[in-house]
Design a protein around this nucleic acid. Sequence first.
DNA 1: CAAGCCACCATTGTTTCACT
DNA 2: AGTGAAACAATGGTGGCTTG
Length: 323
Amino acid sequence: MAIKTSDLNAKLFGKADKRRATTPQEAQKAAKEQAQIIELAVAGEELVAFELMRIPANQVEKETVVFAENAREQSFLNEHALSDVLSTLKERGQQYPAVGRRRADGKIEVLDGSRRRMSCILANKEFLVYVAENINAEHAKFLSDVANAHKPLSLYEKGKEMQSKLDSGEAEDQKALAKMFQCSEALVSGALKAAALPLELLQAYPNVADLGRPTIVKLHKQFSELDTSKQAKLIEKCHDQGRLVWQRSEAQGVARITKDVSETLEEWIEELAPRKRSAVNKIDLVKGRVSYTRKGNNLALNMKKIDDKTMKEILQFVESKLQ
DNA sequence: CAAGCCACCATTGTTTCACT
DNA sequence: AGTGAAACAATGGTGGCTTG
């Protein structure tokens, strides 16, 4: 999919109303020409000079870090989650530089463009970033937040933010959160559930941003029904074999892989939980002779001391019932 | 009584499949 | 090969049920 550099651009310099040079057009022009130095008004306050730096592909991981308060969960950034950026990056290189600030230790802290950064690492490409020397924490957070408007955060990431608002007391309850984040209550409930799930489990999926509420809710229900040791085992299963779950799937297309992973996880959970319940559910229908166990939709009958005639009748009944 | 959860519904966008 | 229909998944909303 030939994305969307135009979209990205519009959002970057138009809608989001940030990085305003004197006019959005000028900033756009500057970015296109990849000017060496541009001046931007950060958060509508003073002008800051940003210098364009080129980080060689093999230095990106070493020389740059992602702003710690960035809401985007870095470990979700894989080739599927970044497919939109990667396609154009591979063809034509990085179209629009990221934005960062210089840290005291000399490293560049990326405020806007963490997805582009990771894409460059994955694709082994040069990373372009506008760097400013003096950006305070508040402005850094501003730039980072506005930047995240490009690509909506996943349920998990939203959930993490909501949870922290809840913890800090900025939001009273889920209703308040819904209002604050401009979304439905149902979504708040789902997002919080997503955030409650362990990272490792979500990393089983090719693209966490694609996971919808129903998927999360279902997963959360299944997962929370396991006891802690079973949960740990499940997580272990997710990253033994050295590969993540989605990397083991043969299916084509992200949607298919996602479905595949869901089914795999479901199977594992089923395996892990032959559960105490089946023991509890083992019911003596006729003492000493007949018992049955119920597992999901399955029924296992166990009968003793059955003569041929009775067996025939029972089998016939089952056959007629289920055909 | 209120908050949260859950199940159901209508709508929408995407993807796939079949038919021309 | 292209186009249209149908199936699927996700979203936001509502109302009812449970629990503290």
